[in-house]
Every structure is written in C-alpha cells, then in structure tokens.
Amino acid sequence: MVEIKNMNIPVDHRTQMGHSRRAKMRQHLLISSLDFYANQPDAELMIDDLIKHANVSRGTFYNYFKTTHELTIALTGEMSDEILKIIDPYIIHYINPLERMSMGLRLYMHATTQYPVWGKLLTRMGPHHTVRERQIDMYVKRDLNLAINSGIIPKDDVAVLKDLILGAVYYGIETLQQEQFKQDYANKIIEKLLKITSLNDELATQFAYCPLIKIEKVETDFFSFLKNI
C-alpha cells in the first residue's frame, strides 16, 4: 500500500506541472498577440506573425488555437472579463443596482479610451464574441433583475432591456474610438439608457453624470502589460 501511494505522488505532481506549463504557454501566446496589436493596432494578426512574435513553433501554436482569429476572440473576451474584475471592487458598495450598473458601464467604456488597443479589439471582434455571455452580460442582467425585484423600476422584459443597454454601450465604444466624440458622450448614452428602464429622470441624470471613480491599481495580466508598454 505504501509503495502504491509513493508511486502515485510523482504522477500527480507531473500532471499538475503539465497543466501549469500549458496554462503559462497559453498566456504567453495571448500576451504575445496583445503585444503585436499594441505595436500594429490596425494590422491583421497572421499565424506567421504570432509564432515569430511569441518565438514558438507552428506546432506549439496549433496545440492551443486553431486560428489567430480564435486566439484574438479569446484574448478580447478575457480582457473584457479582466477589466470588470478591476472595476467591481470600486462599485460593489452601491446599494442601488442601477447606480452600480451605470458606474460600471461608464468605467468599462472609459477603459476603452485609456487602453485604445483593447477598444479597437472589442469593436473588431464584435459583440457576439466580446459581450454575449461574458461577465458584462451577466452583471447587467443581475442589476436589472435586482432593480425590478426591489421596485426601483417597473417590471419589464430583462432580456430586451439588457440587449438595448449592451448594444448601445458596444456601439458607443466604437464611436469613442473617434477623438471628437469623447467629451461626455458616455454620460449621454448612459442617461438615455437609464431612462429607457423607466428610472425617473432626476436619478438617471444623477447616476449618468456623477464624478467617475478613479481607479488607482491595475494588477492584471493583460492591462498591467498594456500599462507598462
């Protein structure tokens, strides 16, 4: 019995090490693609570009992704979730779920102007890959349900409201990539969206135009990388 246990320990350890190495290589490929886009934001990432940039073999790439499009979808979606992990601790204390949703969406949109590489990737990949069933989708749905259940807004079709909100935010992000639209554009979008939920006009304006929270710490793989280049 003792011998069997001792034989199993190194096997389990090797398995864990293998998973760790695989995760690190996948992250290396994602970071390498992000570095490529940071240097060539309008370029189309090809496999030859990636394997040269990441200094890996073609076979290594295919062990993780079928195409560079698949890799870019993974990168953009994971960055979307990652920015929400940064934002969430700053807004979790809001009691009113629509105030929390409003600030969260404004911070999300603002991040695309702070990190234009990510903003361009979001608009390039489209909402199906970057919004649908990602964290932002779940958070908006959660806050709308809480607002309805607590009587802040009247009962409505949450799926319809969520799609209206996320659709407007997504296309708003695309517009924000143009310099001339940056001033209070996000505020205007959020104010209109809050009014669509039937939130009273005074609160809609208050939530949409209150001072934007300043996020001090960015300690994540992708956004820390962008911040440091």
Rank of each mutant, 00 (worst) to 15 (best):
M79Y: 12
A147L: 06
G104S: 13
M125C: 06
L161Q: 12
A147K: 03
L144Q: 05
G104N: 12
A147Y: 01
D163C: 05
Y108E: 03
G126D: 08
L121R: 01
P127A: 07
V117Q: 02
T76V: 10
A159Q: 09
N149E: 15
K162T: 12
D137P: 02
E82P: 09
L107V: 10
G77A: 15
G126S: 04
Y115E: 10
L146A: 15
N149I: 01
V158I: 15
A147D: 06
V117F: 02
L84S: 03
L144N: 09
L161I: 05
H69K: 11
H129I: 00
P154L: 07
P97W: 07
Y139L: 15
G151K: 01
R124V: 06
T76E: 01
S80W: 01
I165F: 10
E78D: 14
K141G: 02
K141C: 10
I83L: 14
E78I: 03
A159P: 00
E99D: 12
I86N: 03
I91S: 03
I73D: 08
I87E: 03
I73M: 05
L121E: 11
R124N: 06
P97H: 12
I87H: 05
Q135I: 14
I87N: 06
T72I: 11
I86F: 05
H129K: 09
M79R: 06
D156I: 00
H93N: 14
L161E: 07
A159K: 10
Y108L: 14
S150H: 07
I83A: 02
Y115H: 13
L122M: 15
H93I: 04
R132W: 02
K120P: 07
L146T: 07
S102K: 01
Y108W: 15
H69R: 07
M101N: 10
T130H: 04
